[in-house]
Amino acid sequence: MSELIVSSSPHSKDHRNVSAIMGYVLIALSPAAVGSVLYFKLQALLLILISILSCVLFEFLYNMICKRKQTIYDCSAIVTGVLLAFNLPSTAPLWLPPIGALFAIVVVKMLFGGLGRNVFNPAIAGRILLFISFPQFMTGCWVAPFDSVSAATPLAYLKNSSGELVTITSKFTVGDCLLGNVGGCLGETSAALLLLGGIFLLYKKVITWHIPVSFIGTVAIVTLLLPRYNDISAIQYMLYHIFSGGLFLGAFFMATDYATSPITPVGRIIYGIGCGLITVFIRYFGGYPEGVSFAILLMNCFANYLDKKTIPVQFGGERRVIWKTKSKD
């Protein structure tokens, strides 16, 4: 008779593990990746591949040099690589992604203890490093898809349209923003393809609705209320803000990054609202046309704190008193 294994319950577990989750994220990113290759041709493909390869390579080397257990099999480096590439303009030189990957993987992720221990989203930190260090490559040389003529992003039009004659409506329709027929980073041009991936993640329960809905909802409400300089209607202004720039990429794929977002439902909603507010304020008042990545990076700092302040009330527990009424005595 064979030896029986004795262990604690539960004896059956869900088959979903970390690499399966990362696999779902990759599947969800694939429509946007295919879209970017269609829009920006070979350059996009090369950027994505180089970015993935360098991320995996740096994680592999770090683990080898530090004599740690090899962690590249959890596929999180691939996800970081794809997201980093999605944040690059199609004109970026091919040596740019490895620099971002080095910072993202080694400094932001592995030095903090690997996946799950990192405070900041690696892909966003990598993007911001490149953004600040190489502004000549990261901004100002956008090209439109298909015809490769230089064009500004919709958000740049929204920003500048106060003084200039060119209004955004003459350049792009909201439908163009939705389908991705505008200038922009590799992955963020097509809101519809990103939405498709996001819906897949929601359907597979990889992410919850809290962060995307509160993030995009906040951006929508605030942009509806902001005063406008040009002739477009409030709803149109809102739609341009929602469908252009990195909002969908940020809201579905980067703000929902597990390690750097809160785990409680209320915490996630507050986190999403915070991301939305900072995004709109940077877009409206700040020096940059785009603020999604800065917003997420800033809110990453608060993730742990939000968790601690929004621990849910246990089943059958007493409701937490938020506003203390005066006691009777």
């Binding site: 294994i5 970390v18 221990r117 849910p312 246990q314």
Partner: peptide, 27 residues
């Protein structure tokens, strides 16, 4: 049998949404 080794908590929050008593198992 599923006998996987445990890895770092990735803070996905699935234990929080699965807990029927509304606790925060990962913390």
């Amino acid at each position: 049998l599923t006998m996987d080794r445990d890895v770092n908590c990735i803070r996905c929050g699935s234990c929080v949404s699965a807990c029927p008593m509304n606790l925060v198992p990962s913390y």
